[in-house]
Simulated scan of single mutants.
Amino acid sequence: MSTEQDALSSQHLTFRLEGELFAVEVAKVREVLDLVPITKVPRAPNYMRGMINVRGKVVPVVDLHVKFGMPPAVNSRDTRIIVLEVEVLGEQLVVGAIADAVHEVTELEPGAVEAVPRIGMHWNTEFMKGIGKRHEHFVILLDVNRVFSVDEVVEVKDVFDEALPAGH
């Protein structure tokens, strides 16, 4: 890995879910959007809010609260959609993720990141890369490529293929 890639992978976008601070690698973030109307999709999994149009492309939107076993997100003026690039089985997928608030891009030094503890966590630790320390706060580093299982991606693709007219 080059020095430029090392620098890039240490930069993270921080956001909040239910009062907890999370982060994803900046390299996985396409953009951050204000909350826009989300079109519901029949028969979608419970963690799927629906779909949005991002520059002419249909993007599924996930409620990370539900995905992580929290109560569903409650929209506020700070709610944002983080548009992410996720890789599953070598395929690049674009997905939107609901966040209570998006904070900043921050640099996390390698020495400030520790392994995920095996006990005492409220969430499924398989989604996490580590726990970072930023000033006096802990930051849960997500591995966006692990948030969705292969079966879930296939299920979401099937539901969206049925919901979209041919040719989209």
Rank of each mutant, 00 (worst) to 15 (best):
M1G: 14
S2I: 06
Q5I: 15
L13G: 00
L13E: 02
L13K: 01
T14R: 02
F15A: 01
E20M: 10
A23I: 04
K28H: 14
R30K: 13
E31N: 12
L33K: 12
L35H: 14
L35K: 05
I38M: 06
T39K: 13
R43C: 00
P45T: 02
P45Q: 05
P45G: 04
G56N: 09
D63M: 03
D63A: 03
L64K: 00
V66W: 01
G69I: 02
A73D: 09
N75K: 12
S76F: 09
T79L: 09
I81H: 01
I81E: 03
V86I: 15
L89C: 11
A97R: 00
I98W: 02
L108Y: 01
G111V: 13
A112Y: 07
A112F: 12
A115Q: 10
V116R: 06
P117Q: 08
R118P: 08
R118V: 12
R118I: 10
G120F: 07
G120H: 02
N124W: 01
F127H: 15
H137P: 06
V139S: 00
L141H: 04
V144E: 07
R146F: 09
S149V: 10
S149T: 15
D151C: 07
V153K: 10
E155D: 14
D158I: 10
P165V: 13
